[in-house]
């Protein structure tokens, strides 16, 4: 199996304390991978490192087959100011950023694509509505529409179904399945293990360090989950300096 991206001994630290510690793993290409682990396990940090929003203090992240430009990323707590006066259509159109950039005009094809994406997430008729009038679920649908339009080969989702009702979750999971059928690479942070088992053939279990990776049933065994929980969430103020040999 080819790797869509490869992490080699990646460590990301906040204030020198590692949030992701010596993680080496390959994310399979054209498949859906779930990242699972307790709170504070470094799941979000790992995604941010993949997008390039945080820098690894050690190790490297490789994209064997492509440039970084083809990544779509949905943060856990999106920093969208939902009071900002912008319409759903304009927001979704930003998904075409790599085509139209900061200065280009959105052509008929772009707007057509945005309308299709809005339709696909079940928001038909909402095109001209201001963002501020959307509910949390509708807003999440709009963000998915933007990602549809981004047409990215690698899609990173950070807890996309938090505080989202069952029906919206089911609709959005259907989009994830569509991406899988399109052979896109999806990496998704999730807490609901049943959701993971039902929709994600691959899983990656984190507890700051990598506990297990591979086919979901083999990675998420009770023993592995127990080990992940046992890895302290604590932030040890007296921790010594990590030497490469000690980690090996």
């Amino acid at each position: 199996m080819t790797a869509a991206l490869r992490l080699v001994d990646v460590t990301v630290a906040y204030d020198r304390h590692p949030a992701v510690h010596h993680v080496s793993v390959e994310i399979p290409e054209g498949a859906c991978t779930a990242i699972v682990g307790p709170n504070g396990a470094g799941k979000s940090t790992l995604l941010k490192a993949m997008v390039g929003l945080v820098r690894a203090v050690q190790g490297r992240i490789e994209f064997p087959r492509r440039t970084r430009a083809k990544i779509a990323y949905l943060p856990q707590q999106s920093d969208v100011d939902r009071t900002f006066p912008i319409s759903v259509l304009d927001m979704v159109l930003l998904g075409r950023w790599h085509g139209i950039g900061a200065f280009g005009a959105a052509g008929a094809a772009d707007i057509d694509g945005a309308m299709h994406a809005i339709d696909a997430v079940g928001l038909r008729g909402f095109e001209q509505r201001p963002l501020s009038t959307l509910s949390a679920g509708q807003f999440q649908r709009a963000l998915f529409a933007r990602m549809l339009l981004q047409d990215a080969e690698i899609i990173l989702l950070d807890e996309p179904f938090n505080a989202i009702d069952a029906r919206t979750t089911a609709d959005l999971l259907a989009l994830v399945r569509r991406w899988r059928e399109d052979r896109r690479t999806v990496v998704c942070v999730l807490h609901d293990l049943d959701q993971v088992r039902a929709n994600f053939p691959h899983a990656l279990l984190m507890a700051r360090e990598l506990i297990a990776a591979g086919p979901t049933e083999q990675a998420l065994t009770p023993a592995n989950l127990l080990r992940a929980r046992a890895m302290a969430e604590s932030w040890d103020d007296t921790a010594g300096i990590c030497h490469p040999s000690a980690a090996a």
Binding site: R68, I71, D79, D81, F84, I86, L94, W97, L131
Partner: peptide
């Protein structure tokens, strides 16, 4: 940049 700075950063601007 006003309403979604994270997106701008994610597309590398």
């Amino acid at each position: 940049e006003c309403f979604n700075p994270g997106f701008l950063a994610a597309v590398g601007v």
